[in-house]
Amino acid sequence: MALKHSSLIELRLTVGPQAVSCFYPLLSSGFMIRVQVGCSIHDLLRDQLGIDGKLVETHIQTVFLNGKAVDDLHQSIIEDGCVLSLSGALPGMVGAAFRKSGFYAGFREAVSFRNNKAPVSGPRPGSLRVKLFNLTGPTIGPFFLRHGIEIAGTELEEVFQTCADTLSDGLRSVKINGRESTSKGLRALDLKHRSIRLFVEASMD
């Protein structure tokens, strides 16, 4: 599931608070993260990504693991190669049905995730694909961007094109493969056919 290492570029950006939103479209289309797998979704979000438990409880209302609706974040275990999708509250009867542990969860029983807590083989390195839909982008997206996400170079290229003006004003610092660089150095990068491990930190200004 992980992107190829041979062509991986590590990119660390610090941007002004307004510019962080430029990266949200990357989050809804999906990205890879490297984590310790073998833990629950709740522990992944709280312990490894540092997302406050209350934020998880209130802002993440709908969760899918491998396309199946999750009801209990504590009982659902992340395995290597999983696809994890997170969403805020949703409208519609079906939106209500997919809500975690919602009153209408029975409506979608056929596609509900069966808790897999029992066969835990302990934490180990792995990766998973994550999608952050709708309002989870702005609310918990920054935690993932700080942790580091892996995407295709063409996807990042599209962000740089769409948000050229915002990033031109908002870029504070650039590190490419561990070395300090500049916006000029960033522009000179050939992102095509490359995989990017991207870290984005918001500056305090």
Binding site: S28, T62, F64, G67, K68, A69, S85, S87, L90, P91, G92, V94, G95, F98, R108, V111, K131, F133, N134, L135
Partner: peptide, 16 residues
């Protein structure tokens, strides 16, 4: 923020 079409990604993710 998104209108009713906010459902597209989710219903798709659910395989529904």
């Amino acid at each position: 923020a998104y209108g009713t079409n906010v459902l597209t990604n989710i219903i798709n993710e659910a395989g529904a």
